[in-house]
């Protein structure tokens, strides 16, 4: 098969334009099913007298948000950011640092996290978007690492040891989020809301132009679009969404550390998105769920669980080129 050295730089197939409507409908159904199932988790936890399920799944939903935001630029703009975990960190540190100074309201946390994420995304995105492909991957890594090392040097906020929160964020003066199931539904709500937002973005004229720049930036330029602006806007939106997941992660773990921003984490997010199926939005969500559940499940059997995870990744690539989402679409007979 390696006898056919055809250029392979084209990004993996995306839904072709004419197919969009019916496909989207089926995706909507899939999304409804997934989110609906998720909504039952606290109920199952209650019935099985296992409240921990709710806590564990909150973390999974948090990563699903981060992966969803990455898929927005990775899947639809072919912008493989290897520094995406930095934005999760901004949100988490907004909670930690503001709480340290007595400001515990989640809306302030969100505003601060999003604000920092937007500024950082605009500044670094403007430089990074001058590059393409692997160069883009590596320059985003560079900026992510700079953010990481900045936070490890903040001794006042724990340096690399991280910082333990005294409690969760408050909502308009109430400690509503202290209840695990409330935090769970807030996180689920954020996931659904951001999923709808992302879906609206990719289906808007903006989203189509963005997808167009991925396919052929030159042609888009020729017909009068400046890809740079669209890509930068998408980059900023994705960063802001990731910072929201960071605020929720800080609340879930009640602990914040620079480890949240390391390149390993950025790599994990990329793995989640590709595994789930890029350019499907739901793929990122599914990827996060699968990777984290797999990790939990495999680590039960052996400390060498990474070997099992590696095996799964290779098998998925070899036998289901479009990730898990592709697998499902094929199983349901909708894929080509």
């Amino acid at each position: 098969m390696s006898d056919s050295p055809a250029p392979t730089t084209a990004p993996p197939a995306s839904p072709a334009a004419p197919l969009r409507r019916p496909r989207l409908f089926s995706r909507g159904a899939a999304a409804l099913a997934i989110f609906g199932l998720m909504a039952l988790v606290p109920l199952v936890a209650h019935l099985s007298d296992d409240p921990f399920l709710t806590v564990a799944f909150t973390r999974i939903l948090v990563f699903a948000i981060a992966a969803l935001s990455l898929d927005l630029i990775l899947g639809y703009g072919a912008l493989v950011s290897f520094g995406h975990a930095a934005y999760v960190g901004f949100g988490a540190y907004a909670v930690a640092i503001l709480s340290r100074h007595g400001i515990t309201d989640i809306f302030v946390h969100l505003a601060a996290g999003i604000g920092v994420a937007v500024i950082f995304a605009v500044l670094t995105g403007a430089i990074a978007l001058r590059t393409r492909g692997v160069y883009f991957i590596m320059i985003t890594l560079a900026f992510g690492q700079m953010a990481y090392f900045f936070f490890t040097s903040l001794s006042a906020y724990g340096g690399d040891d991280g910082i333990s929160l005294r409690g969760r964020s408050t909502v308009l003066g109430t400690d509503l989020l202290a209840h695990n199931s409330v935090l769970f539904y807030v996180t689920l709500g954020a996931l659904v809301g951001l999923y709808l937002l992302a879906a609206a973005v990719v289906n808007s004229r903006f989203g189509r132009v963005l997808a167009g720049t991925r396919e052929d930036a030159l042609r888009m330029q020729a017909i009068g679009f400046r890809p740079f602006r669209y890509q930068l806007a998408a980059f900023v939106i994705a960063g802001a969404m990731a910072s929201i997941s960071g605020v929720l992660l800080a609340n879930q773990a009640e602990f914040v550390s620079p480890a949240y921003m390391s390149w390993h984490r950025s790599g994990e997010l990329i793995v989640m998105v590709i595994l789930g199926g890029i350019g499907t939005l739901l793929g990122g969500v599914v990827g996060a769920v699968v990777v984290l559940l797999l990790e939990e499940w495999l680590s039960v059997f052996t400390t060498h669980w990474r070997m099992g995870l590696g095996l799964v990744l290779i098998l998925v690539v070899l036998f289901s080129p479009k990730g898990i989402a592709g697998l499902f679409e094929r199983l349901l007979g909708r894929g080509k």
Binding site: G158, D160, D161, G162, I163, S164, A253, E254, F255, S257, A259
Partner: peptide, 8 residues
Amino acid sequence: NILQAIFR
């Protein structure tokens, strides 16, 4: 750093 995280 793990101690800080698991303490609470």
